[in-house]
């Protein structure tokens, strides 16, 4: 295989991505340091000193963190149960977890509008059984966003963990038990540590995903902004492209920092070294 042939295969894709992705992204980042032809970090200073912006940042991080923790706590036992099933049942449950993942996020967030709304399923049921006497205000709050995001990302962490847990040799558990460990101890000492890489990858996906999700906060968050809806608002509604670019850059930086450190952590915690 001559070198030229190799380049011919790769060049179209590389050119296309360079032109339509790399340059726009790099230029967007670069543009945050220039305003009216001179170097500036005014955009960042403005962002970091404005209480409103910081509150949005904080809400976003809070929502993402709670979502991630909830997904791990709910997803881990479920994934463990699925991974122990026979191939047929496992296949069906995996398919049922993958289906929502492939379903439009608009559909999935919208379904929660029906449930969480003022006259939604949740409120009408609670009112009917007399648990509350006036409707709860859940929709258009951070809580609604979290519920929507957990619903959005729970399948992701479940299937990631099943993928990892499937590959844990069941003889390891038996070996641990034969050495005197109880089932629960064996679970904590064998399954949990061996699942750490999957857990970290899953957590990265959920955390970064929640941090940057747009549809769910846009539909369920109401006036409550998160960083992605704030970016959209500045770009489209307020037409402040400089600030929008600053937000975009901050999002990229956060994403890559999270991925980088979680990967480091994964390598460090991986019991297989």
């Amino acid at each position: 295989m001559r070198k030229t042939g190799l380049y011919l295969l790769l060049l179209p894709g590389v050119l296309f991505l360079t032109l339509f992705m790399v340059i726009p992204i790099v230029m967007t980042i670069a543009s945050t340091f220039y305003q009216d032809g001179s170097f500036t970090i005014q955009g960042y200073l403005q962002f970091l000193t404005d209480a409103y912006f910081l509150k949005i940042m904080l809400t976003t991080l809070q929502v993402s963190l709670v979502t991630t923790i909830a997904c791990v706590l709910i997803g881990f036992p479920a994934a463990y149960y699925i991974s122990k099933l026979g191939p047929r049942k496992k296949g069906i449950l995996l398919a049922l977890a993958i289906f929502p993942l492939l379903t439009s996020s608009v559909v999935r967030s919208f379904s929660w509008m029906i449930i969480l709304g003022k006259k939604g399923l949740l409120n009408s049921s609670l009112l009917a059984i007399g648990l509350i006497d006036k409707p709860l205000e859940i929709l258009y709050t951070p809580t609604a966003m979290m519920i929507g995001l957990i619903h959005l990302f729970l399948p992701l962490i479940i299937i990631t963990l099943v993928g990892v847990m499937e590959n844990i040799d069941p003889d390891l558990l038996k070996a641990a038990e034969s050495l005197g460990a109880s089932k629960l101890t064996a679970f904590w000492k064998v399954i949990v540590p061996l699942s750490v890489p999957g857990l970290i990858i899953g957590s990265i996906l959920v955390f970064v995903g929640s941090l940057t999700a747009y549809t769910t906060p846009a539909l369920l968050g109401g006036k409550q902004r998160v960083i992605s809806t704030f970016l959209y608002q500045n770009a489209i509604t307020l037409n402040d492209w400089h600030l929008a670019s600053v937000i975009a850059t901050i999002m990229i930086v956060i994403t890559f920092v999270v991925i980088y450190f979680m990967n480091k952590l994964a390598t460090k915690l991986n019991p297989k070294g």
Partner: peptide
């Protein structure tokens, strides 16, 4: 090259959308 080809899934979609609006 592998990294470049996979990067569109790593960059937040909303950021990609905005950058494309700006440049494309």
């Amino acid at each position: 090259l592998n990294g470049i080809f996979i990067s569109p899934v790593l960059i937040p979609g909303i950021v990609m959308g905005f950058a494309m609006l700006k440049y494309v």
